[in-house]
Write a protein that binds this DNA or RNA. Structure first.
Lengths: 166, 166
DNA sequence: TAAATATGTCAACATGACTGACATATTTTT
DNA sequence: AAAAATATGTCAGTCATGTTGACATATTTA
């Protein structure tokens, strides 16, 4: 299997599509389901995880930027973000340049929670990378980048590449 | 960017993890959101799409198998599957060997709907594959396969590889 | 005949999305 | 200075999709 299975040339366009689609579905599913247990003990869900992640990765993130990253409405964000703020995981600083803005930061508590959630997921992904090999990781990144909608790509890739400069 | 961005060696483990995770999130998000418009005109959602896909790919699929592929409870499935059956997109044949089983098939109508949904998504993914190159597609598949939970991998890869034999 | 299995259904509930309308504080434009 | 635009927040109702628990039916297996 290991050989024929991954041999792109031996696939028709439709087969390539099916394989890509199904592997993306199952891989994503099994990767994303990891942190659920940790989250549940805190009464949080995946929505909270996403916020913790993006705020952690982008300290000082504005609410409007977070909304764009999550692709949801402010009303949806509100409930989830509010509980994170109430429970002391996220801090909202008033913008210094524009006082209407709320700049989001993780508190120490929030960072600890994020680290705990991340732990397993990080291990899981790095194991997969090791198993597949460096060359494959590069391909993985390239295809996913190409899957991002054209109108979002530049902005998203800039953000993804943040703090990875050479 | 194109160079440094995808150069795996220039990344720490943590950076690799972050990049993999974020690209997976955004790539999956933008890929999966395509069919929504088509679906909505029929009053269907993503859950319906998943059923149509797996039944279409595996004619004669048993309900229990579908449940396992979707990782949901039969109560959840019931509502969605029922509407698909009622509206004539999915047919439930009584098993010939075991008459308790319901073997699922797409009707012609169901196949037409699936084709319509699939159209854009297929184009989107094949474009991404072309852009990234064959070598990358292989890596994409390999990493995703490695991301599937160990206890599921063999069975899922068998199913993904169905009708792609050499 | 009894137990196990495959499927379906009723009811209540949780999460995380949505829309629409409105409120407040602050900045920008006129 | 007043008016308009912007960033954020909130109330209220709705929807899609998942959950648990309990129970029902038909069929196969022990």
């Amino acid at each position: 299997m290991t050989d024929i299975f991954f041999n792109v040339k031996k696939h028709s366009d439709h087969q390539k599509f099916l394989k890509g689609m199904e592997l993306l579905y199952f891989g994503y599913r099994d990767f994303i389901s990891w942190p659920d247990d940790v989250l549940q003990t805190y009464g949080f869900g995946r929505a909270h995880h996403r916020i913790l992640h993006f705020v952690g990765r982008n300290p000082g993130l504005k609410v409007a930027e977070l909304l764009k990253l999550l692709n949801i409405t402010k009303q949806s964000l509100s409930r989830v973000l509010s509980t994170l703020v109430e429970k002391g995981h996220v801090r909202q600083d008033i913008g210094t340049i524009d006082r209407r803005q709320r700049l989001l930061h993780l508190t120490e508590q929030g960072q600890n929670l994020l680290d705990k959630i991340t732990e397993h997921q990080k291990e899981h992904m790095l194991k997969a990378f090791e198993k597949a090999g460096e060359q494959s990781v590069e391909g993985f990144w390239k295809v996913l980048s190409a899957l991002i909608a054209d109108e979002n790509r530049t902005e998203i890739l800039d953000r993804v590449n943040k703090d990875m400069g050479e």
